[in-house]
């Protein structure tokens, strides 16, 4: 069954997520930018745990590091961790109602946020204070529309 899924919708999905991750935003709302790539990694490893595992997440993270000019390995580590936690919990996450799923996802994002905080602290770029946790809230808000959209994408593949 799974070999009928094509790779290009997922690829396009990640390209859009990457673009959104660095798209220009007004300075005042920039800290609230949802972590689009991390959310996409969580979505795909929740729904296709066999295909998109920690290795793929790590490679995507490495590309994101270069794109955002971060220390090489920072986003790679946190995305691999996100994929790991999601795959471990995917059986439960998939049957959650959507609001409960959104809360769980934002908790995963919070854990990643603390990792990012820790790495930034070690490389000497600690800034932002409590605003660092803004993506936790914004990812809770964008998770339902994101899953709605991605579900449609998956469904259209299966029907054809």
């Amino acid at each position: 069954m799974s070999n009928r899924y094509r790779i290009w919708p997922v690829l396009a999905f990640f390209l859009v997520a990457m673009s959104l991750e660095v798209a220009p935003m007004p300075e005042a709302v920039a800290p609230w930018r949802p972590p689009w790539v991390a959310l996409s990694v969580i979505y795909w490893s929740m729904h296709r745990p066999g295909r998109y595992g920690v290795g793929v997440a790590w490679l995507i993270g490495l590309l994101l590091d270069v794109l955002k000019g971060a220390v090489l390995g920072q986003n790679a580590l946190s995305l691999a961790l996100a994929a790991y936690v999601t795959i471990k919990l995917c059986q439960r996450l998939r049957v959650f109602p959507i609001w409960q799923q959104a809360i769980s996802v934002s908790l995963i994002i919070a854990v990643l946020g603390f990792f990012g905080f820790w790495i930034d602290g070690m490389t000497g770029k600690l800034q932002g204070g409590w605003l660092r946790l803004a993506p936790v809230i914004s990812s809770m808000v964008v998770w339902p529309p994101l899953t709605w959209f991605a579900d449609r994408l998956v469904a259209s593949r299966v029907r054809r």
């Binding site: 595992g53 580590l77 691999a80």
Partner: peptide, 29 residues
Amino acid sequence: LGMRLFLLAVCSILLMYLDHQRGHLQTVR
């Protein structure tokens, strides 16, 4: 899965060390 995550984490920490402390990874980047 846990083993893979562990290996990748070790890789990432090594990368971060080389990139931040040493600046060796210009070609990779």
